[in-house]
Design a protein around this nucleic acid. Structure first.
Lengths: 259, 259
DNA sequence: TAAATAGTGTCTGTTAGACACTATTTT
DNA sequence: AAAATAGTGTCTAACAGACACTATTTA
């Protein structure tokens, strides 16, 4: 039997769902419809049901919030947060997951969310703003340098920290694994993949060296033989994801640009 | 208020405490004194107290089980495990931590553990064995290839999987961060550090190239000016840890040796 | 034709791996 | 001196970054 003095805690999963759209790294946020933090923006998530494992709960939440199928994109456990004061209702432990997805149709409103939308990670709503200035969609220009995640935000709970951890994980993981392809549609060009790296890292990459690098790293890309039709330019070859799980050698993230 | 249908779960932390001793990568295991799995070997750990955060619980358990001070070695969150069937008492979520420590004196028996000792990670007790064949200490020769973590083991709960995840994390983390120094005493030689890499990776490294690599990677090592006295050989310079948190460029893990 | 994007080749500097060689100790 | 370990230098192959150049499309 369990010792009597143990206090069990409610167990939740929260999702950092990232995508690249309109040349911006975006995260899916939902506006909370209930207390605590009613009206504030938060990461999508919910409590783990008594009959499901953590991964199953994350997959279910992802489907409920985005309609994303299990096989699309990438999903991995990020970290667990259980600080005593992170939820005013008392201690709640949340297991955060990181999801990377291709540009999706407008998200579906979840069960307990009044609304949901994509936010540029450099332009997270501040405390006090109602966050509707950008209508539904991302606003084109980012105020930041393309790398930082706003420090003082109005996100509910400790979700600003979880988001920052998720973005940092994504930025480092595309260095040594091919998960950047999770941001791409099933078939994609080298230029599309390069834009992903440039946007996630906030840097510029030489198109020619990038092309050589990704096409010659074993298992990264599989040529389909097909090409895209383009407007003004040579058609690009289309690729699908290879079966490599790690990149040897890794992609090198350039030093941050001074600008 | 929390929705009524939420079932709170007991929250524990478990530690994968690794060290290098007698030229072997070792993990600290405790023999369980109480049910479930009484008599079986398990990772040290315990339930999170109502008034402490996860990191605090991990630090407390580490001190209780090993006497290890907070500042020694390295401690980081590994992953969270909450499968429904991982504990016969019902669902228990455990947040696993990875600790890397220098070779320590014989561990102290914990509060609810009948005994504790270091085990070579390649020689984890099997189901059915009582695990006392090696007396107190690690047995010199490893049966394995120096890399695998025994698949079918007799560890309690899902601790074999957690241990495997922890070892894999350690093996990859020393590639791109200087945490291998956490296995070393406060002052150490290049050869000591090289043995750490060789033992954790299960490979041989060229002493001369390794020396050049670690001494020329900015922030990895700080020379103290002192040297060791040795028996038969030129005295080696002593170093302390540098302040780098990431290695640029990373250490390269050689292909596994065929032997 | 020009403009635009895709893709190849070439040069150079850095670094990893192999290994000859020197340096400093104990026996 | 011999043995042992520490540390440096040198050569070569792989690879990243810079960038000239060719290829294939649309307007």
């Amino acid at each position: 039997m369990l010792p009597a003095e143990i206090v069990p805690v409610p167990l939740a999963v929260d999702l950092v769902v990232l995508t690249v759209r309109d040349d911006t790294l975006c995260v899916l946020l939902v506006r909370r419809g209930i207390e605590p933090f009613a009206g504030r923006w938060a990461l999508p998530g919910g409590f783990v049901r008594p009959d499901e494992d953590l991964d199953a709960a994350a997959v279910r939440e992802l489907r409920e919030e985005t309609g994303l199928a299990r096989s699309t994109g990438h999903l991995e456990q990020l970290a667990t947060y259980a600080d005593l004061d992170r939820d005013p209702r008392g201690r709640v432990a949340t297991v955060a997951y990181l999801a990377l997805a291709p540009d999706l149709p407008v998200p579906v409103a979840g069960t307990d969310a009044a609304a949901s939308r994509w936010w540029a990670v450099t332009d997270i709503p501040r405390a006090g703003s109602d966050g509707d200035s950008g209508a539904n969609g991302t606003d084109g220009g980012t105020g930041g340098d393309g790398r930082a995640v706003g420090g003082m935000t109005g996100l509910a709970f400790d979700h600003a920290r979880i988001l920052a951890d998720g973005v940092e994980r994504a930025r480092s993981k595309i260095e040594y694994s091919p998960v950047a392809t999770a941001f791409c549609p099933p078939e994609f060009t080298v230029a599309q993949l390069r834009r992903i790296y440039e946007i996630v890292w906030g840097t510029r990459l030489d198109p020619r060296n990038f092309h050589r690098k990704v096409t010659r790293t074993a298992g990264f890309l599989v040529p389909t033989g097909r090409t895209t039709t383009r407007d003004g330019g040579r058609p690009a070859e289309l690729f699908t994801r290879g079966d490599a799980r790690l990149l040897h050698p890794a992609m090198l993230r350039p030093e941050p640009e001074d600008r």
